[in-house]
Design a protein around this nucleic acid. Sequence first.
DNA 1: TATTTTTGCGCAATCGTTTGAGCAAAGCTT
DNA 2: AAGCTTTGCTCAAACGATTGCGCAAAAATA
Lengths: 337, 337
Amino acid sequence: MEGKSNIFTIASKTGYSVSTVSRVLTGQAEKFRISKKAIDLISETARQVNYQPDLVAQTLRTKQSRTIGLLVPGIDNPFFATLSGSIINLLAARGYHTLLADSRESEREEEQALQMFKGRKVDGIIAVPVATRADNLEQIGRDIPVVLIDRHFKKTTLPYVCTDNYAGARMATEFLLKRGYKSILAIQGVTTSMPNQERLRGFTEAMEGKPIQYAIAGDAFSVENGHDQVIKAFCNGGRPYDAIFAFSATILLGTIDALRELDLKAGKDVGVISFDNNGFLDFLDPAVTRVEQPLREASELAVATLFEIIKARRDGLRDPDLIQKLIPPTLTVRSSC
Amino acid sequence: MEGKSNIFTIASKTGYSVSTVSRVLTGQAEKFRISKKAIDLISETARQVNYQPDLVAQTLRTKQSRTIGLLVPGIDNPFFATLSGSIINLLAARGYHTLLADSRESEREEEQALQMFKGRKVDGIIAVPVATRADNLEQIGRDIPVVLIDRHFKKTTLPYVCTDNYAGARMATEFLLKRGYKSILAIQGVTTSMPNQERLRGFTEAMEGKPIQYAIAGDAFSVENGHDQVIKAFCNGGRPYDAIFAFSATILLGTIDALRELDLKAGKDVGVISFDNNGFLDFLDPAVTRVEQPLREASELAVATLFEIIKARRDGLRDPDLIQKLIPPTLTVRSSC
DNA sequence: TATTTTTGCGCAATCGTTTGAGCAAAGCTT
DNA sequence: AAGCTTTGCTCAAACGATTGCGCAAAAATA
């Protein structure tokens, strides 16, 4: 009954060889014409001794770990937490386990995590990359199926599933313009990341040729950044902008905080719009208009894509058609602008 | 340069035996009096062929995976997301990797995850248990070091690090009373969980003998629950309670939402207090008074405890003194009550 | 120079599985 | 009854590392 039982225990208890036991326990009984008698006896004893296969040994032998490496740049960021949760559950539903690593926006830690994934023989990797160049991940992608999510590289051979950040930012900006705002402050996040660059592009292209003042500030997807940029911009006590476009929900929170400090009412004194879905945004006062990313859909597509590649490679086929999808976000209008 | 190099590759490239290579690469060179020449040559070739040890094979042989299993009841809950992030990073700092599983408040999924951890040969487990009985986890705890966090069992031999939920709830309740509220609605979460039971106990004991009306409702740590209970309680259009005690931040959000629906102003019409730390609570209007849990401290203690047990067992000693700690939470006063 | 000690390393078993190949016994065919 | 098929299983070699034991050559000692 104790945890010491292995395939050998069962073999000697039943009088069959380890081969036979293995084949029964891995469901290959039919294929190898094991007698019903043997199947029953072996299964029964396996149950009795509470046999649990050693997944490590199995992995070593079969080169399949039924484990996926998930790499995010900050698990404590609610956005990535939600994303991770979604992915982990989708993987679990397929019988896969998740090794979770946090690169904390550091290329070095990302690299380490990837090496670790490799050493651990993960069957695939889902990553929100922080590196600025695709090389390393593409290199790994040759050995292990990799799908990028949320962030991607400009020209890459890796599959990805991201939000169409360009379209989203453009949509948000145009919404602000339509609302009649005349001077807009955009507060951005990690400037090297693709989502940020795309949002920036969406914003500036939407502003192009418009007789509207605007500025771009900031450099991190953090509350502090949101706060500090607003304070800095409004520091002289004036009201230089009548609208703020926060490139993430974390930035938005900082913004809200700063506005409150400045005794300005979001939605009334200053229009506010944000990126990122975050249920929280509805509980703020005013509830915040935002560009919502189809998180669930993205996770599902990423996981499905990953498994298609895994399957193809397992069958010795070449990779399926490259999936590089930008999912259009939706505008959720509330009362903040 | 390709990922195919193993210890054998290096052995033949250098002319040394695999034993020697292994000893050099695992830093046991001195101990086995390997010559400096051999050490240099082997290290150098290892670098050249970009050798990465196969962690699976290593685990099989050494019975140490340098992996910890982390089990939470809902990774998409910001509270657990933050907790996980904190733990993952602490583990990473010690060179350990994390297998993350989500039980989704289901005993069955919890059991599966634990079996998986065992099969994966994790060196230890940190768990927020959902089971109502300790048996299963205690059983596993005999094989693998286990530390509980956030939730624990009444009488258990397992170490745990939790918030002193009783004290926290009592503190919150007494604060409400001191503020002069006369009728309080407490909205609770998963009723079987220890934190909830303790919070409930703290609440009711604080109310004992007080000439104050109160009610207890709810059964989930969710936004919906918070919302629905408020609506239900206030449905006849009256204002039966002048204060609400939300047993978690998620519940609180639902509460806020419901109050808004009812056209009641939190903080003004109805006092509001919450459990759980969540930076978000400061951005609500009004910012919410709350019992803050020392998440960081708890994670650190849990991880430290786990490693002490791991170390002791590895050295063949018996487990260190049982750590069962309730960390007192702090009251963060804002303007919501 | 003969013996002992030290130095430096290799042999081979082992961890718990999976799996290709092979083989005896039973059944079937003619 | 000889030959062919099928049935039902076993043998033993992997997978990639670690490790107890042993042993030859060199160095030290006598």
